[in-house]
Design a binder for these strands. Structure first.
Lengths: 203, 203
DNA sequence: GTAGTATTGTCAGTGACTGACGATAAGCGT
DNA sequence: ACGCTTATCGTCAGTCACTGACAATACTAC
């Protein structure tokens, strides 16, 4: 039983990934993972706050990277441009972690508990980005909305990239941001007026 | 010990809400809720699949309402207009449930476990909306992106409405959709080119 | 009132997670 | 090589969410 923290942690993650791929996440107990890694169940929970958290460690680095990118973006950029630039600057991180997130995606997709945790992680990252935008002087409400939309766009681009074939992540990102721009062809106010003719007398 | 299903369910929810507001969600056990409602812990879990699920029953009706609204929207409407119309048509449901979602919001905000469940619920509703858009002939990828952005906008509008003071939900919704339209002033392609001047020789 | 069905109670058990405390390995000075 | 300190680990006991199996009980129709 080694006492090197990182070593034990690494072995726990390896053991967990193997067992998850064999029997699936729900069919694997923390005790089994610990045993395969050569430690006790108690030790497992000293390294990870809970069973789900093992999956979301690359995302910690991603969050720090994105918030830093927003913080360090040129002052003159608006919030939307800032997010676009920040997302693009993180492309390398996604590519480097693809060999982890690719198989992890299947496991997460098969487990409601993991999906919940992932959704929560996305939310907290969204709020972190909104906070950074606020630091840059964006009004609170606007910062929150733009962060939400931005993360939705990012999540969509990454998902398309992981699912899809040969296209680059950056292409998916640019495409998704362009799709958002296309949404503006829709004039809300005019639509709102014409959509409920029963409330108007003229035409 | 009554054997009327709805009656027992109602008493369980009442007991739960009271205890949650007293001691908080994590400090309340399922056994305590059941006891306060006059039944056994086992019965609690026959009425609710798990402890978190109690909170998200109004959202079931909301999901059905929204998906139906999308399904029944005029054929000629584009996906974005369809969502806008669908969201507006659900305003009454939100207003009717405000007395429930308003205090429930504080409890959820104080509990990571409940936040995770809520985020997952939002995700599944998002996918349901994307599926409805696909049924209307929208390309799969585009449907997914628009549903995500739409739900982000809706969530933002509802949150602003619950937080904020006197403004109507509909005003928040219209405002949020307009904010999205304003995002289009940003030309992605041109920005992408000019943003990395070190790669270009001219200017 | 009786038979049938739906709902509940009881019991035993699993698995995630935690606190407390003793044991042990690793690093360090001598 | 020897103790000393500290971080890490093992062991144990316990809580709580959740489940399966089966018996007990209330409701419902006849």
């Amino acid at each position: 039983m080694p006492r090197n923290r990182e070593e034990v942690r690494r072995r726990l993650m390896e053991a967990a990934l193997e067992l998850y791929q064999e029997r699936g996440y729900e069919q694997t107990t923390a005790a089994e993972i610990a045993q395969k890694a050569g430690v006790t169940e108690r030790t497992f929970f000293r390294h990870f706050p809970d069973k789900r958290e093992m999956f979301f460690h690359g995302e910690t680095a991603l969050g720090e990277m994105l918030t830093a990118a927003v913080r360090n973006a040129p002052r003159e950029l608006g919030p939307w441009e800032t997010l676009f630039k920040a997302f693009r600057s993180a492309e390398k991180l996604f590519i480097e972690n693809r060999h982890v997130s690719e198989p992890g995606r299947r496991i997460v997709a098969a487990s409601p508990a993991l999906q919940e945790r992932q959704a929560a992680k996305v939310n907290s990252l969204t709020e972190a980005l909104a906070a950074e935008l606020r630091e840059r002087g964006v009004a609170a409400r606007r910062a929150s909305l733009i962060a939400k939309i931005g993360m939705a766009v990012l999540a969509h681009a990454v998902a398309s990239w992981l699912d899809g074939g040969s296209q680059e992540l950056d292409d998916h990102l640019v495409q998704a941001f362009e799709d958002v721009s296309d949404l503006s062809a829709f004039n809300v106010t005019r639509f709102a007026e014409t959509a409920e003719p029963q409330l108007r007398t003229d035409s």
